Simulated scan of single mutants.
Amino acid sequence: MSYTRVTLQQHPKTTIEPSTFKDETVPIPTKDDLKDGDYLIKVKLVSLDPTLRGQMSGQKSYIEPVKLGDVMRAWGLGEVVESKNPEYKVGDIVSGVVGFSEYAIGHNQDHRKIPNIPGIPLEDNLGVLGLTGLTAWWGINGVAGGIKSGETVLVSGAAGATGSVAGQLAKIAGAKVIGIAGGKDKCDFITKELGFDVALDYKSADFKKDFKEATKGGVDVYYDNVGGEILDMALMAANDFARFIMCGGISQYNLDKPQPLYNVLQVVPKRIKMQGFIVMDHGDRFPEIIKDLAGLISQGKLKAKTHLIEGPVTGLPNALKSLFEGANTGKMIYKLDSKL
Rank of each mutant, 00 (worst) to 15 (best):
V226C: 04
T30Y: 08
A327C: 00
K216Q: 14
A175F: 07
T25Q: 13
N141F: 14
F211Q: 09
S61E: 09
V80K: 06
Q9P: 01
A144G: 03
N141D: 07
S61D: 15
L340P: 02
D32L: 03
G127A: 12
D210H: 02
G130A: 15
G183F: 10
Q55L: 15
G54H: 07
L129Y: 14
N328C: 01
V90H: 04
H111I: 06
E213A: 15
T15G: 08
T132Y: 08
T15C: 02
Q10G: 03
P258C: 03
P121G: 12
K339H: 08
K208V: 15
G248K: 07
L231F: 14
Y262I: 03
T215I: 13
G58K: 02
V279M: 08
I120P: 01
G145C: 10
G218N: 11
Y253Q: 02
Q55I: 12
L68Q: 03
K89L: 09
D38H: 14
L129R: 10
E229K: 15
V219L: 11
C247R: 08
L131P: 12
G130H: 15
G326L: 12
P317S: 04
Q168G: 13
D201P: 14
K291F: 00
Y262W: 01
V43F: 02
G146E: 08
Y3N: 08
L200D: 13
I172T: 01
D197V: 08
Q252Y: 01
K31N: 05
N108M: 14
G228Y: 02
T25M: 11
T25E: 13
I140C: 04
Q168W: 10
G249L: 10
H107D: 10
V165P: 08
I120S: 04
L40M: 06
F207D: 10
D292P: 00
R53L: 09
K35Q: 11
L340N: 12
A199V: 11
Q299E: 15
H107I: 13
E123P: 00
P317L: 01
A161T: 08
S204F: 13
F286N: 05
F286M: 04
R271P: 06
I178E: 06
L296P: 09
Q109T: 15
W138R: 13
L336E: 12
D292N: 12
L194M: 14
M56F: 15
D292V: 03
P312M: 02
V267F: 05
K331M: 10
G150K: 13
G145S: 06
G183S: 05
M280S: 14
V128R: 05
V226Q: 11
K273C: 08
A161N: 04
D201Q: 13
L323W: 10
K184V: 07
P27G: 01
G96H: 04
K44A: 09
K305T: 11
K60F: 15
A158H: 05
F241M: 07
G157L: 03
G160N: 09
T51W: 03
D36E: 12
